[in-house]
Amino acid sequence: MIWEVFRQKKTGEYHTHCGNVHAPDREMAKLFAQIQHGRRKPTNSLWVVPQEEVGEVDAEETSFGGTTDKSYRWSTAYNIEPPAKEVEESANEQAEAERQRGDS
């Protein structure tokens, strides 16, 4: 049985996928994962999830965010200067995300 492993580097950060382990059950998966994925890289916490329990939908079967123009969802569609600092930070994150969407 294959278990997907998610590692969190430090308290407060996100668990991100880092690999998997073969193990007969959850206990063994946790034992194996801490060695295979936690022994070298900085690790604060690991999650193990049965691979068969992971559902996937990918860009081949759907268009994430749609195919028609949805720029109204992005702060870049609104020509407002200068916004409050925290609004600007959000706007910058959105501009970055929009660029990345365009690249993919």
């Binding site: 969802r73 609104y78 916004p83 925290e86 609004v87 959000s90 994150e93 959105q94």
Partner: peptide, 27 residues
């Protein structure tokens, strides 16, 4: 509370559009 902070990351990301949308209507 870490899950709360993580929710904030996502919310603040989206919220910038809201405030600018509101200001656009006000202008």
């Amino acid at each position: 509370w870490e899950p709360y902070a993580h929710a904030m990351d996502k919310i603040c990301f989206e919220e910038g559009f809201h405030v600018k949308h509101g200001e656009s209507i006000m202008r």
